[in-house]
Simulated scan of single mutants.
Amino acid sequence: MPNTLNPLELIARRWQPSARLVRQAALATVVMAVIIVITGGAVRLTQSGLGCSTWPKCTPDSLTPTSAMGINGLVEFGNRALTGVLCVVVGAFIIAARARHPRRRSLTRLGWAQFWIVMLNAVVGGITVLTGLNPYIVSSHFLASTALLTVAVLSWKRAGEGDEEPRDLVARPVRQLAWLLVLAAGALTVIGTIVTGTGPHAGDATKLDHRIPLDWREITQLHVDFAYIVVGLAVALWFTLRAVKAPAAARRHLLELFGCIAFQGVVGYVQYFNGLPEFVIELHMTGSALLWVAVLRVFLSLRDRGPLLDDGDAALAEPSEETAQQATREPSEQGTVPAQPTAGTSASSR
């Protein structure tokens, strides 16, 4: 019996997408991951978590909401429908990445990782409904969406770079400072979900005992403290990158992060001093997703994996911005003589 090719292999033999198309497909997964965060927030803030009374159907007798369910049923079902759109977008990225020649297994693995996270989050969403909007499950639902966003950003970055061994563009202490920024921003996100879980938008506003049993003001203060830590680390990294003359891309991404931090700070204080209005909280959740994307882009810009080669696109065959800057920089600009590789540079940094 002849060997049977799987569908992805058949597509790869008949279609060769450009590297630019693969990168655009990866960017689409990032956009959809952010949209899912926004629509998930809308479900929570409009008290539509039980708009569909069961899962995977909307009602025991209907896959879609009925007119008697009103706006809550439409909001909840709309979020579920967007999960289907997300699956299509992730699937398109997997197909495009698999069809690229030469095959880049690391890229297809990231695509499949997104797919399985989406499946996991769909199950978590079902458990959320079946448990009557348990605040812990509601919070884990948001964190799973953040995990999806993380892998989507990694996919976007990998789709635009080569496959050489990763090379640090800054010294190890600078990378470690950037790691601290990532960890602090991650902790800020987790604490933010706990803040919401202790307040009126924990899940079901009609049940006061359906909240995380922590003092709302104390956990909010902890959230603010970590926000200041993120600001401090970002400022420290800015001056450090300037001092070591880091690549312009890294400093540009850090400026984008400052914009997200400023937006989040303003929105956070507005919602705190105005009784947690739903629309402002939705803006805060959107800002949280964008801030996380910005933090990841800063961190990933501090290493290089060489240019992305594409026979059909000479522009992509040119050295990356970071590589070109490193190659043309005068030794005196860097403050050191041309150095031999040292043990302080980690080849395994991602």
Rank of each mutant, 00 (worst) to 15 (best):
I137H: 02
I261L: 15
I38K: 03
G111Y: 00
P319R: 02
A25L: 10
V270Y: 06
R109V: 15
V195G: 01
C87I: 15
A327H: 12
V138K: 11
A315H: 11
I94R: 02
E330Q: 15
L107S: 03
L233K: 01
P277S: 06
L180C: 13
A184Y: 01
T206R: 15
Q16K: 13
P173N: 03
S301E: 06
V235F: 15
T196W: 01
P2L: 10
M285E: 15
W112Y: 15
G203C: 05
Q326G: 06
W216K: 13
C52S: 08
V298D: 06
E9P: 04
G203K: 02
N6G: 13
R109H: 14
G40S: 08
Q16M: 10
Y269E: 14
L154N: 07
I191G: 05
R109Q: 14
R251C: 07
A202Y: 03
V123M: 11
G287F: 11
T336A: 15
V85D: 02
S106P: 07
A12K: 09
I261M: 10
V195M: 06
L241T: 11
W179F: 12
I36L: 15
A99V: 07
M69D: 03
Y269A: 12
A249L: 14
A178T: 00
P247S: 05
A144N: 14
H210T: 02
V295D: 08
T342R: 09
P247C: 08
A171P: 09
V151S: 09
E218G: 07
L133E: 02
S301P: 07
Q264D: 11
G160D: 10
T206K: 13
V230Y: 03
C58L: 04
P173H: 04
A144V: 14
F142H: 02
N121H: 08
